[in-house]
């Protein structure tokens, strides 16, 4: 069986790289932490990997807008290798700042010309907030296959309000089943703040591209790898946290398809 190779890509201000790498390692993959400069310089090649992970953090300090400068580096310096990576049927996941990067580079929701059709803007509360949220899985995405129940993950961001350019984009996302996670309450009901921590349109917490192979989400699955980290962990049976399965799904997909 193929050994799954994951590139966790970081730059100045990335700060969830180590736990993202640990998550893929727990999922049975080989992970390598790379600075974006090593891809731009050609010292390392994206082609050598099956999965590209864009971890959370504050790339370039969120200056101008979150994820913007990193997104432009992808668009203007790595676009050819990225296009090939996607065409080859490989996987991309962007978490929090990674999601912001995917959205601002146009890799999500995804179009031939990499147009930015959606955005993640400052929370309705006007500030950074850290809290745990319930997520209702939906859509068709290889990263969330087998997800049948509500999962519980932390969010921590200041710019996570998902919006679309217009109604057409939103209905396209719905029609194509590209919405992967909705914020909800413990019972699965779609409710407002604080269950929806940022005021996202239609409670959207994560989306994928049309192929289902590129996932972006604001919540942090890599921060809930162990049930000990659950805020109310005292009577939980399983040792695994809700986030781990996402990374396992990614690794399994590569094992089954490469």
């Amino acid at each position: 069986m193929v050994k799954v190779k994951v590139c966790v890509l970081r730059t100045a201000g990335t700060n969830c790289d180590q736990e993202t790498a640990a998550a893929f390692k727990l999922a049975g993959a080989n992970t390598q932490l790379l600075h974006i400069n090593s891809l731009v310089s050609g010292a390392k090649a994206l082609n050598d990997f099956h999965i590209l992970a864009l971890p959370g953090g504050f790339s370039y300090g969120d200056d101008i807008a979150s994820g913007k400068i990193f997104a432009n580096e992808l668009r203007f310096k790595l676009v050819d290798s990225l296009r090939k990576f996607i065409k080859d049927g490989k996987l991309i996941i962007g978490i929090c700042n990674g999601f912001q990067i995917l959205v601002k580079s146009g890799l999500l929701p995804g179009s031939a010309e990499l147009k930015q059709d959606t955005s993640l803007i400052i929370n309705d509360s006007g500030k950074f907030e850290d809290r745990w949220v319930y997520l209702m899985p939906s859509g068709r995405c290889v990263w969330t296959k087998e997800f049948k129940r509500i999962i519980y993950l932390p969010v921590a961001h200041g710019e996570g309000k998902f919006i679309t350019k217009d109604k057409n984009v939103l209905s396209r996302l719905n029609k194509n089943e590209q919405i992967v996670f909705h914020y909800c309450d413990a019972s699965g009901k779609l409710s407002g703040y604080p269950d929806n921590p940022n005021g996202s349109t239609e409670n959207i917490a994560g989306i994928c591209d049309e192929t289902g192979r590129i996932l972006g989400l604001m919540p942090h699955p890599e921060r809930h790898l162990f049930s000990a980290g659950h805020p109310r962990n005292w009577n939980l049976k399983s040792k695994a946290g809700d986030g781990l399965q996402i990374f396992k799904n990614g690794a399994d997909y590569i094992k089954n398809n490469f």
């Binding site: 736990e19 640990a22 500030k127 907030e129 850290d130 921060r223 980290g229």
Partner: peptide, 16 residues
């Protein structure tokens, strides 16, 4: 105050 601080980054928070 507390919510404005990331207390989960690095993935090791047990008693928050």
């Amino acid at each position: 105050v507390v919510r404005q601080y990331d207390h989960e980054v690095q993935g090791g928070s047990i008693i928050k």
